[in-house]
Design a protein around this nucleic acid. Structure first.
Length: 369
RNA sequence: GUGGCUGUGGUGAAGCGGUCAACACGGCGGAUUGUGGUUCCGUUAUUCGAGGGUUCGAUCCCCUUCAGCCACC
């Protein structure tokens, strides 16, 4: 198998686990946070800058690359790794979530999804087969099954039909997939219904994917409900395979995810919020563009050792935001990625030293919001 | 010096006798979780250059004054 999971250490008190993920482009420590580079670039960051923060896998996107520049072009360039000059791991999302986000612009049938491009309104069709073909052309290390993300809230009937279809689609993705140097992960759906989560997990596990994602969470439901779903769903997944919680990236959610046994995460949150002038610190969120920092000459986070914190003040970074200088959002992006990747590595160390619960408690006591 | 025009929030401006002075930008604050260097939400002029008058009521009419711009001497 092209992608395998190696369990290194299990927490004695929670479901948390430390491991290693072996991929065709290297081995990466888990739990891992994968920065999002939707359009074949980690926004505002060069590949070297991503590596300097310790990024291992990054996430890119089928929907976006299919529309622009087109997967054939990427294949012609020699694949996504070569095209964007990234020699570590790449995971591509199938486009299911994007199509879900398009709302009124799309129509779902058993065959697939007809949708209109958010760029020019042109009509397109994405199916399990097509999404898999596109991802094979891109050549990412991990590709995702084409799923339908159940919205929140959703009626039980709707969620059941959708979840069953996602499983049928997963089987079609598996039938289509034939690249031995990449792994296809299945995605558990089921909305906020435990019986459907159980059904989805069981059906997908029987299809024997090399890894499993928990999808359909962090779609607007209360955090407690998300944690409840995680606690229910993760134990249904095979222990010897990686588990990936899609779309989660705030520090508090990451700790909870890790505690419940999740190995992989991705989220636009740290980078998007950075681009809008907000950073994460050991004490919680800090909106550096706010007026209260105009004369604050301290670093973003005095406990942080990142390039931005070592060299620049809140007042300076705020000034860059106020004047729309691109260097400002580069600094906050550097900081947020450093913060989050460092945070993941601290969690991993805590698991290995079997003090994860204490770590979690200390962190949550300090970090508000 | 004479004639004309203009003076509304941080900016550009609408209104022109009658509820809370339109809108845009900016500012301030919030949101943002498998798309969006994006988008969304809230808020931001007890006051219309100043003073006086007419009127039940004036940013809007009248008088005085100040300031800016233009033209002429």
């Amino acid at each position: 198998m092209s992608v395998t999971y190696e369990l290194v250490k299990k927490c004695s008190k929670t479901g948390a686990r430390a491991g290693r993920l072996h991929t065709p482009h290297g081995t990466f420590d888990t739990p891992i946070f994968m920065p999002v580079g939707t359009q074949a670039t980690g926004k505002a960051m060069s590949p070297d800058e991503l590596k300097d923060r310790g990024a291992g896998l990054i996430l890119s996107n089928t929907y976006h690359l299919y529309l622009r520049p087109g997967h054939e072009l990427v294949a012609e360039a020699g694949g996504l790794h070569k095209f964007m000059n990234w020699d570590r791991g790449i995971l591509t999302d199938s486009g299911g979530f994007q199509v879900f986000s398009l709302g009124a612009l799309r129509k779902i049938t058993e065959e697939g999804v007809t949708f209109r491009s958010h760029i020019d309104g042109s009509k397109h069709f994405l199916s399990p087969e097509k999404a898999t073909e596109v991802q094979m052309a891109l050549g990412s290390d991990i590709i995702m099954a084409f799923d339908e993300c159940v919205p929140f809230p959703a009626e039980h009937d709707y969620a059941r039909n959708s979840t069953e279809r996602t499983t049928r689609w997963a089987e079609r993705c598996r039938q289509t997939h034939n690249r031995s140097d990449q792994a296809l992960f299945g995605i558990v759906q089921g909305g906020m219904y435990k019986d459907l989560r159980t059904m989805s997990a069981k059906d997908l596990v029987s299809l024997d994917f090399p890894g499993y994602a928990v999808g359909g969470l962090s779609v607007g439901e209360p955090k407690m409900l998300m944690y409840e779903m995680l606690e229910h769903t993760v134990p249904l997944l095979p222990e010897r395979k990686p588990r990936y919680l899609m779309g989660v990236g705030t520090p508090d959610c990451l700790v909870e995810g890790v505690m419940h046994g999740v190995d992989m995460f991705d989220c636009v949150f740290p980078t998007r919020v950075a681009r809008n002038g907000t950073v994460m610190t050991n004490w919680g969120r800090l909106v550096v563009k706010n007026a209260e920092y105009a004369r604050d000459f301290r670093p973003l986070d005095d406990k942080c050792s990142c390039y931005a914190c070592r060299n620049f003040s809140r007042a300076y970074i705020r000034h860059l935001f106020k004047t729309d200088e691109i260097f400002g959002l580069r600094l906050t992006t550097i900081h947020n990625l450093h913060f989050l990747l460092n945070f993941m590595s601290k969690m991993r160390t805590a698991i290995i030293e079997d003090r994860f619960l204490d770590f979690r408690q200390e962190f949550l006591a300090q970090y508000n919001r």
